[in-house]
Design a binder for these strands. Structure first.
Length: 217
DNA sequence: GCGACAG
DNA sequence: ATCTTGTCGC
């Protein structure tokens, strides 16, 4: 796989992204996906955790270890983690209603970030939560929890800069597939009652780190 | 041409 | 992503 092919795949698959309708406003189950890398970068662990959206209780999870499928290239990040994340998703026994991805969706140079890609290949509603920006400009949201501003790239709104905790650096929420920005944002806020990142992401992060360290749950 | 650049 | 030293706070 080369950069040119990867970009061509993105250009082709982005036509499959469904941006119609508000999508799920009150899903019963939500999945968090994350990947951890070994120090030398030769090995990785991908984890998916499924939580009850109301109680945030863990209802299912899966982890797989493997190798990065592509070098890290900004804009082609999905090609690095997608195979392992799909393998982890295949191991779930329950099908989550929304995927919460660690990275961006539409807030991407070609409007096809990891969240869009995962949404298209799984057919599931998906959204992205990035910790740092990839594209776009924004004004800092007010300091209180729940405050937000538009993330814009040129004339388009590609996401939202959302303050999930008062006085803490905001996160970058963008739509991936089959969910609108309003529902995506309110869902992320609900999933982050105490920390900056949604519980889905936090639990997946812990799970893949533990798996990499060779720990047995 | 020079930076910037999800994880 | 991961490493990295100390620091502030519950």
């Amino acid at each position: 796989m080369h950069v040119e092919e990867a970009e061509a795949i993105q250009e082709r698959l982005r036509a499959e992204v469904d941006l119609t309708g508000p999508g799920p406003a009150d899903p019963a189950t939500v999945a968090g996906l994350d990947v951890a890398y070994a120090e030398d970068g030769a090995r990785l662990a991908a984890a998916v955790t499924v939580l009850d959206a109301r109680t945030l209780a863990l209802v299912d999870s899966a982890v797989v270890t493997g190798r990065p499928a592509f070098p890290y290239v900004p804009g082609l990040f999905a090609f690095r983690e997608l195979p392992a994340l799909e393998a982890a998703l295949d191991r779930l026994t329950v099908r989550p209603e929304v995927l919460i991805c660690d990275g961006h969706g539409l807030a991407h140079p070609r409007r096809f970030g990891l969240a869009c890609h995962l949404g298209v290949v799984t057919g599931l509603p998906a959204l992205g939560v990035g910790k740092t920006p990839l594209v776009g400009t924004w004004e800092p949201p007010a300091p209180e929890r729940g405050a937000w501003t538009d993330l814009r790239d040129g004339t388009e709104t590609v996401g939202r800069v959302l303050r999930t905790q008062a006085g803490v650096k905001p996160v970058f929420v963008s739509v991936g597939h089959r969910i609108g920005l309003d529902n995506a944002s309110s869902l992320v806020l609900r999933l982050a009652p105490r920390y900056r990142l949604p519980e889905t992401t936090r639990q997946a992060d812990r799970l893949c780190r533990d798996a990499l360290a060779g720990r047995r749950p």
